[in-house]
Amino acid sequence: MATADDFKLIRDIHSTGGRRQVFGSREQKPFEDLVDLGWLKRSSVDSRATHYQITERGTSAAL
C-alpha cells in the first residue's frame, strides 16, 4: 500500500524528468518500494549506482 512519502517521492521524480540515479543500498529502499508498487522500474544497475525510470503507472500516481 502506498504511503504519503511514496506519493511525495514519485511527484519529485516526475517533476525532475522521470529518472533518478541512486548510490548506496540504504538510499535505494524508498525507490525499491516504488518498484514494488509498479511506479518505477530499474533501468540499469552498475557497481556504484542504480538507475530508476518512472513508469506510466508512476506518472498517473504523480498527477
Rank of each mutant, 00 (worst) to 15 (best):
Q21K: 14
L9C: 04
T50K: 07
E27L: 11
Q53I: 14
V35L: 05
S60Q: 15
I10T: 01
L63K: 08
G24H: 12
L40V: 06
F23R: 10
I54S: 02
A4E: 13
V22L: 04
D12S: 12
P30H: 07
S44L: 13
P30K: 10
L40H: 00
R20G: 03
F7G: 02
T59D: 04
S60L: 15
F23N: 09
R26C: 13
E27R: 11
V22Y: 03
R48K: 14
I10Q: 00
G17V: 02
H51W: 15
L40P: 01
G24Q: 08
S44N: 11
M1L: 13
G58W: 02
F31N: 01
F7W: 12
S47P: 12
S25G: 10
D6C: 07
L63C: 07
V45Q: 11
S25V: 13
Q21P: 06
L40C: 03
D33W: 12
V22I: 08
M1K: 14
S47T: 11
T59Y: 07
G17Q: 06
S44Y: 15
D6Y: 07
D6P: 05
A61L: 04
G38Q: 05
F31W: 04
W39I: 01
S44P: 08
R42D: 03
D5K: 12
D46P: 06
F7D: 02
W39P: 00
T59N: 07
T3D: 05
V35N: 02
L63W: 05
V35R: 03
P30L: 06
R48D: 15
Q53H: 10
D12R: 08
T3Y: 05
V45R: 09
P30D: 05
L63G: 05
T3H: 06
H51S: 13
S43Y: 13
T55I: 02
Q28I: 09
G58V: 01
T59A: 08
R57K: 14
A49G: 15
A2W: 06
S44W: 15
D5H: 10
T59P: 01
D6G: 05
A49T: 10
T16C: 08
K41L: 13
S47H: 12
M1Q: 13
R42I: 15
